[in-house]
């Protein structure tokens, strides 16, 4: 077989490669994603379009997209390098050795210390660190608790009521091991406004 059959005929022709390429694009790039997307949309319609939260017919956001909160009567989320824009999504990509990171943390730390009347050394790290996505919808339960007094006074309600809401909206690690305890900031703020069903 060595000398009678040249290698080239035992490979595949250009035409076969071209046909294979076209068929594979249709199979892997067309049929596979279309089938999964259709099935996923059928089985999980709420998740399929971005887990949107609709109140009185208005879309107020997504459970999976953090929003920017500035008003003193709302819980504030994490710093964002993308200004909480899901079309821009980005982390800061600052190295630990970058002086600009130190400066940003100093300013945020000062701001929170003044706003929530707390010592800088008591501010939970997640409130000072920019998230990877720029739209992290969660903060740690500690980061929510240090904001409770401010929110209570801005809204003229007892602090216990705010703390009780934090408690109710804290999600524990799945099965006790996967992930971290966390609070969804948008849902917690909707609950403050009385717009969220408790669950």
């Amino acid at each position: 077989m060595t000398d009678s059959t040249p290698d080239i005929t035992r490979s595949a022709s250009w035409l076969a490669s071209l046909r294979a390429g076209i068929v594979l694009i249709i199979l892997c790039g067309g049929i596979y994603p279309f089938a999964v997307t259709s099935l996923g949309g059928l089985l999980f319609p709420h998740q399929a379009t971005g887990s949107l939260i609709t109140i009185d017919g208005n879309v107020v956001g997504s459970e999976l997209v953090g929003q920017r909160f500035d008003a003193p009567g709302y819980f504030h989320g994490r710093p964002s390098a993308a200004n909480h824009d899901p079309f821009v999504v980005s982390g800061s990509n600052y190295a630990a050795s970058n002086p600009e990171l130190r400066e940003r943390v100093r300013q945020t730390s000062q701001l929170i210390a003044d706003r929530d009347n707390i010592a800088p050394e008591a501010i939970p790290v997640d409130l000072l660190a920019a998230s990877g996505s720029g739209i992290d919808p969660h903060i740690s339960p500690d980061a929510a608790r240090i904001q409770a007094a401010r929110i209570a006074s801005a809204r003229g309600i007892p602090a216990e009521q705010v703390n009780e809401l934090i408690q109710r909206y804290t999600q524990a690690p799945t099965l006790g091991v996967l992930g971290q305890p966390r609070v969804n900031v948008l849902r917690l703020n909707l609950a403050l406004d009385g717009k969220e069903r408790s669950d």
């Binding site: 982390g91 998230s131 903060i139 971290q180």
Partner: peptide, 9 residues
């Protein structure tokens, strides 16, 4: 170190 990391993870 939570810079660039997500709270849920």
């Amino acid at each position: 170190n939570l810079e660039g990391k997500e709270v849920r993870f």
